[in-house]
Computed example of a mutant assay.
Amino acid sequence: MFAIFLTPAYLPFAIAFVVMIGIGLIEAIGLGLGHLDLDGDVGADGHGGVLDWLGLGGELPILIWLTSLLGCFTLAGVAIQQLAESLRGAPLGGPAASGVALVVGLLLNTLAANGLARIMPGFETSVISSDDLLRQRATVLEGVARRGAPARAKIVDRHGQAHVILIEPHDDADAIPAGATVLIVRRDGARFFALASEDTFLQPL
Score class of each variant (00 low, 15 high):
Leu106Ile: 15
Gly148Met: 08
Gly122Tyr: 09
Arg137Thr: 14
Arg135Leu: 09
Asn114Gly: 14
Arg118Glu: 07
Thr125Cys: 06
Leu106Asp: 05
Gly105Asp: 05
Arg146Leu: 03
Ala138Gly: 07
Gly160Thr: 10
Leu141Asp: 09
Gln161Ala: 15
Thr110Trp: 09
Leu134Arg: 00
Leu92Ala: 08
Ala101Leu: 06
Gly148Phe: 03
Asn114Glu: 01
Ile167Pro: 00
Leu134Met: 04
Leu141Pro: 09
Val104Leu: 14
Arg88Asp: 07
Ala153Thr: 06
Arg158His: 14
Pro95Lys: 11
Arg146Val: 06
Arg158Gln: 13
Ala145Ile: 02
Gly122Cys: 07
Leu107Val: 15
Gly99Asp: 10
His159Ile: 07
Gly115Asp: 02
His159Tyr: 14
His159Thr: 06
Asn114Met: 08
Leu134Thr: 02
His170Met: 09
Ile119Ala: 08
Gly122Leu: 04
Gly94His: 10
Gly115Cys: 05
Gly148Val: 05
Gly94Trp: 14
Val127Lys: 08
Asp132Ala: 14
Leu133Gln: 07
Lys154Gln: 10
Pro169Trp: 00
Phe123Trp: 04
Pro150Tyr: 00
Asp131Phe: 06
Leu133Arg: 06
Gly89Cys: 01
Leu141Ser: 06
Ile155Ser: 01
Gly94Arg: 08
Asp157Glu: 09
Arg118Cys: 01
Val127Ser: 02
Val164His: 13
Ser98Glu: 05
Arg137Asp: 12
Gln136Gly: 05
Ile155Glu: 02
Leu111His: 12
Ile128Phe: 09
Gly89Glu: 02
Gly160Cys: 11
Lys154Arg: 15
Leu107Thr: 12
Ile167Trp: 00
Ala153Met: 04
Arg135Phe: 12
Gly143Met: 03
